[in-house]
Design a protein around this nucleic acid. Structure first.
Lengths: 202, 202, 202, 202
DNA sequence: CATGAATGAGTCTTCATTCAT
DNA sequence: TATGAATGAAGACTCATTCAT
């Protein structure tokens, strides 16, 4: 039975991975369920044994990948000492996770936005949980007197991730990359940190 | 004849505006051409006198609105004195233009991203032109010695607008607004400016 | 007023001629009324001042051209002396009229057949009148003892024209013409005449 | 599995047969795919599992029926002794195949012509193969000294079939049949044979 | 669990025809 | 008469989903 479970999970995984590939290439609305099935090497009908419908595939895909991202990010952040270092590590890890998996990058950059529409109801708690890894660091910094008290973590966490994402989006979509993504990330997190930290001389 | 011209333009406008409303509410792929027609109070077929197909409506919509945004933004920025003020004004103007027109906000936040897919080829020159209003200001600041020389305008322009947009997106999508958008914008542009300007004491 | 009449007829003619050109090129169902209008250099709506609908254009076109064909054919046949010569002249004239006007050839070869469908009711009296020019000649030949009495004019008139038309159709449609059409016509009418005439030696 | 195979073929057959019926009644362009589906007792979409599009149905229909015609005709002709008898048998068999299946008669008489348009590229090899059954007989007759040497098989094969078809067309379309079709066929093939055979007395 | 043939609701788009000017 | 912008009915085709095997 454990074998069966394993094979079942396997199949669900395979479908999710196939969906990621297909969604990334064609976009959610231009992807066909049958294409995902072919990519996953299962029959069309099989998909409906594991997912309620096409939307459900996308949502599952998000949850699956976001959980992985959160877990990995949490681990990386915990390694760091100070809050500022944490922000820096967040930026690097975020970008490396996203750029290392091109398909996931496409999906999160494009489909996540779009699907905000059909996922209206679906409160993206995982995304918030992910973002909160930033606000925790900021709050910690404020408590330790390293980060300005007049900074609102709930605002800056979004600004930070938005800045990183816009950069990644450009990097993902553009064919001729002008800037090395790692240089860009360093620069952006540097500006942010510079902008939020308490002035030493004062 | 001027009346006719007027009414013709009127009709195209009306369709664009109707499309904006419908796309904003349902998203591009969930919008029906017939819905746009009804909203614009024209027959379904009339739309195809002015647009090649559904995609063309979306593209026209972008171009039309982006041109308006660029023109207005340019005017506002030129009013300012220093580069830093320009960045601040950019932020405020950007957000006010976007939030004042909820439908446009939805479209630019969601559909623009999504359509990056089908507009792959369609190099979004207007968007770049818009972003360059930021990099001009940054370059100016660097020349005047107000902004750090090690800042790359092409990177920071994206980071800046990405930060603003992520904030707006949250604001647009969330039903219960925790933060006043103007406060958020002030804070974000403040962090950016703080992060890129030359330290006075040094 | 005569001028106006003239110009009116002119316009109707122009439309008919344009329709012939367009139908010939694209076929009836793949022709657009607007295309005919453009070709005739009139507005779309103008066509409906002269014709009830698209079908009516085709019917008018037939009647107009068939009348011309009948009149000309009658004149040519009357020039001849004997019935057998008349059949020969019919063949030559038929083919030359058709092949001289490629568009008309296309229309009569293809659209006439097709439209048998939608012209079900429309008894093609003109076509019969045209065919009867053959049966008259055959009857005349039978009366004069030149053509076999066991030949049924109503059958052979169709066989004759069918043979000629199939040949023309091939000639019209094929790009590389194997046979000179005039040679083919001579051979076909020769076989027919040989087949229907009374054996001299008996 | 043989059952499945059978039922699959069955379904494609059923659609072809339904299409023949509908095309015959309404003509290709006035037939609705949904009508064919209803007639075949399948869902609209099912048709597209077996055919690329509406045109493809027509082409498949032709190929399917022409192959049957060729096979049957070949068999019938091979039974005969002399070339002249073969021509006679061709005529009878041609007409009986066509008139026995009214729908097919309509389709081949009307749609085949019309579609010459959209099948421009589609070289009708099967039709040529069918016609060549005539020219083989003619050539054979020439070799045996029964048929005049100055006859061109490539021309007369078309003349012959054209004569037969025009007769059938009339017979198919006319409501009150003046002539028994078999009588007409006998007369036509008699005229042709008389016209092409070598004069005995000479 | 797995399949994939079958379904049929749903939509973009075309184009003959109309009618206000 | 002439125009051509506007109409809207109509239809080919797609594809998510089901269900008998």
């Amino acid at each position: 039975m454990s074998i069966k479970e394993g094979s079942t999970d396997d199949k669900k995984q395979r479908i999710v991975r196939a969906a990621m590939k297909v969604f990334a290439k064609k976009g959610f609305y231009n992807s066909r369920v049958s294409e995902i099935a072919r990519e996953a090497d299962v029959a069309d009908g099989t998909i409906y044994l594991y997912f309620k419908n096409k939307d459900d595939i996308l949502i599952s895909l998000f949850e699956y990948e976001m959980k992985k991202m959160i877990a990995y990010m949490r681990k990386e952040i915990e390694k760091c000492d100070g809050p500022l270092e944490r922000l820096q590590v967040f930026a690097y890890t975020h970008i490396s996770m996203i750029t290392e998996n091109h398909d996931w990058a496409e999906v999160i950059q494009v489909e996540l936005r779009q699907s905000a529409k059909f996922m209206r109801e679906y409160v993206n708690e995982l995304y918030i949980e992910y973002l909160n890894l930033i606000s925790f660091a900021i709050k910690e910094g404020q408590e330790k007197g390293i980060i300005r008290k007049d900074i609102t973590p709930g605002i800056i966490k979004r600004a930070f991730v938005g800045a990183l994402d816009e950069m990644t989006r450009y990097w993902v979509l553009s064919t001729r990359k002008k800037h090395r993504i790692s240089d860009a990330i360093r620069e952006i997190s540097d500006v942010f940190i510079e902008g939020i930290k308490v002035e030493k001389e004062k």
